[in-house]
């Protein structure tokens, strides 16, 4: 069964149609790439799916649960998580606290916070252990007690991934996770994302300008240009699609593989 269904999704900003009646579906256990030139509407689409922005039209479903009109926190509780293109970690918090914040909907302490009974302490211990596991998974365990804002750029991106994973999602939206990473970091990231799919059975929706990474990782691709879906298919199909070649040539790059976006 389809995990994410996007139908007729549209978002207008004044005169501009940033996302224009986009349809696509993400199958469970796959990495689905969402690509397109700068300004194509990829981040806006993420904002619509995660509930950060309200759509002008269209609908989004997670499994058979309609998400329309739900605030972001409800979508998170239902199994959606995301990272941000312009890194948005909580920079004053420690790295560990950032990840523990991602666990918010999976923790239930209320009065226990004031009473500090064994239930509260056990939950907090479990949360800490889970957060440490995730930090180990993304390779940041040694930085657990560092102030998050003091991390180097690439580490902040990995922290965002760990924090998103802490939400215990079924679907993770990753907005340019490799932006600003060096080739070694990008290579490690590729391995990490593969493991998320292959070992943890997670489903990823990936926006990325690094074409080698996209082509080697993604099971399926949806291509946007000027807010519209211009292609949808396997990486091989998409690469050969005339509209895609046209779109990328139109932005000034000569091959799909050289287009790389600046973080906005």
């Amino acid at each position: 069964m389809t995990l994410l269904t996007v139908q007729g999704l549209t978002r207008r900003f004044q005169g501009l149609v940033a996302v224009d009646s986009v349809d696509f579906a993400v199958q469970p256990g796959t990495v689905h790439g969402l690509i397109g030139p700068n300004g194509a509407g990829k981040t806006t689409l993420f904002n619509l799916v995660s509930g950060v922005l309200a759509p002008s039209a269209g609908s989004v479903r997670l499994g058979d649960q309609p998400l329309d009109g739900l605030p972001p926190y409800r979508r998170t509780a239902l199994g959606l998580a995301r990272t941000f293109q312009n890194i948005r970690i909580f920079s004053e918090m420690t790295v560990l606290e950032n990840v523990m914040t991602g666990l918010h909907t999976r923790l239930s302490a209320t009065w226990g916070i004031l009473l500090r009974g064994p239930g509260f302490r056990a939950e907090e211990r479990r949360a800490k252990a889970k957060a440490r596991d995730l930090l180990a998974f993304v390779g940041l365990i040694d930085a657990a007690d560092t102030r998050a804002g003091d991390l180097p750029y690439g580490d902040q991106r990995r922290l965002e991934i760990a924090r998103a994973l802490a939400c215990e999602p079924r679907l993770v939206l990753l907005d340019e996770p490799a932006a600003g990473m060096n080739p070694a970091e990008t290579h490690a990231l590729l391995g990490l994302l593969r493991r998320l799919r292959d070992e943890r059975g997670l489903t990823l929706l990936l926006v990325e300008h690094d074409m080698p990474l996209v082509m080697s990782l993604c099971d399926r691709l949806t291509v946007l240009n000027f807010g519209r879906r211009i292609a949808d298919g396997t990486p091989a199909e998409v690469r050969a699609h005339p509209a895609v070649i046209e779109a990328y040539l139109g932005t000034g790059s000569h091959e799909v593989s050289v287009s790389r976006g600046a973080a906005s």
Binding site: V52, Y73, T76, A81, S91, E92, T101, G102, R163
Partner: peptide, 10 residues
């Protein structure tokens, strides 16, 4: 620190 990010964290 970041209201929108906090909302996305649940």
């Amino acid at each position: 620190e970041d209201e929108a990010a906090a909302g996305v964290m649940g």
